[in-house]
Amino acid sequence: MRRTSTMPSAPKPPTTLSSSTVIADNASLSGTHTIKIGSNTAIHPRTKLFSGNAPITIGNYCILSERSITGYQSAIPDAEKERGGGGVVIGNGVVIEVGAVVEAKEVGDGCVIEVNARIGKGAVLGEHCRVSPLCIVAPEEVVPAYTVIYGDGLRRLDRSGVKGDVKIDMIGRQADVLRRLILSNPAKFQS
């Protein structure tokens, strides 16, 4: 078994969960830094959040799908620590699909990170970006708002589509549906 995030006797990380967070019983939260999850955010079963190297902050109305891994997988450099590196910060209305790996410093509001995409360590995604399946954002890269990364690393800007409150509302409805479907057990993760 190659599991880096679930050590046999790993202590539970300090968590701040909202009362309206939907978090599946067999999601995995591990590490030593704080994990903060906002309201109306849904976390599917088998999602991994690893705060062993830096804290994780997830906004409101986000959806994290199974097998996705969020959090720095390796230690952050000292220079970053001195600058008070806040770890992974995910905005509001962000959807992370199956198997995506997110090590970004910042993911802007309304971003969609699709199946098996990888966001490199310390990268910054602007608002309403979309990273298509299997696409890769390099470490430390800064992606401007409204960028669509598709195909074999091609990029374009797309300002169409729903955004703002309408988009948040749509994701909120999805979270409401998931609240009924997913066996939620926030108590297990509360510290």
Binding site: E66, V98, M170, R173, Q174, D176, V177
Partner: peptide
Amino acid sequence: RPPGRSTKGVFS
């Protein structure tokens, strides 16, 4: 994984 979408404001 069954697909999901919003139709007429209802997600399913």
